[in-house]
Simulated assay, not measured.
Amino acid sequence: MQETDQHELDALLATSRIIRTFNSYYRAVDERQFDAPRFQRIFAPDGRIVRPNGAEIAGPADIAESHARSFARFEASQHLLTGHDVDLDGATATVRANLVAIHLWKDRPVTVRMEDRAFTAGGVVTADLRESGKGWRIAEVRTRILWRTGYFGDLAQTR
Results as ranks from 00 to 15, higher is better:
residue 51 R to N: 13
residue 151 Y to A: 01
residue 30 D to P: 04
residue 16 S to I: 01
residue 145 I to D: 07
residue 53 N to T: 12
residue 40 Q to Y: 03
residue 97 A to T: 01
residue 73 R to H: 01
residue 144 R to T: 08
residue 51 R to M: 14
residue 92 T to F: 06
residue 44 A to G: 03
residue 120 T to I: 09
residue 116 D to R: 10
residue 35 D to A: 09
residue 40 Q to S: 05
residue 106 K to W: 09
residue 15 T to G: 12
residue 54 G to L: 05
residue 38 R to K: 14
residue 58 A to L: 07
residue 11 A to D: 15
residue 29 V to Y: 08
residue 21 T to V: 10
residue 80 L to Y: 11
residue 62 D to C: 03
residue 83 G to A: 07
residue 1 M to N: 13
residue 104 L to F: 06
residue 158 T to L: 06
residue 14 A to W: 01
residue 32 R to F: 08
residue 83 G to K: 09
residue 140 E to Y: 00
residue 151 Y to F: 04
residue 150 G to D: 00
residue 125 V to L: 07
residue 147 W to I: 04
residue 18 I to E: 06
residue 138 I to R: 14
residue 126 T to P: 01
residue 143 T to M: 10
residue 157 Q to L: 05
residue 59 G to A: 03
residue 90 G to D: 04
residue 81 L to A: 07
residue 41 R to L: 04
residue 88 L to Q: 11
residue 119 F to M: 07
residue 124 V to M: 06
residue 110 V to M: 10
residue 34 F to Q: 03
residue 78 Q to P: 00
residue 73 R to S: 01
residue 25 Y to W: 07
residue 32 R to K: 13
residue 48 R to L: 01
residue 12 L to I: 15
residue 38 R to Y: 12
residue 110 V to H: 14
residue 102 I to F: 09
residue 94 T to A: 14
residue 147 W to H: 14
residue 16 S to T: 09
residue 33 Q to H: 15
residue 12 L to N: 15
residue 68 A to T: 06
residue 132 S to R: 09
residue 159 R to P: 01
residue 77 S to V: 01
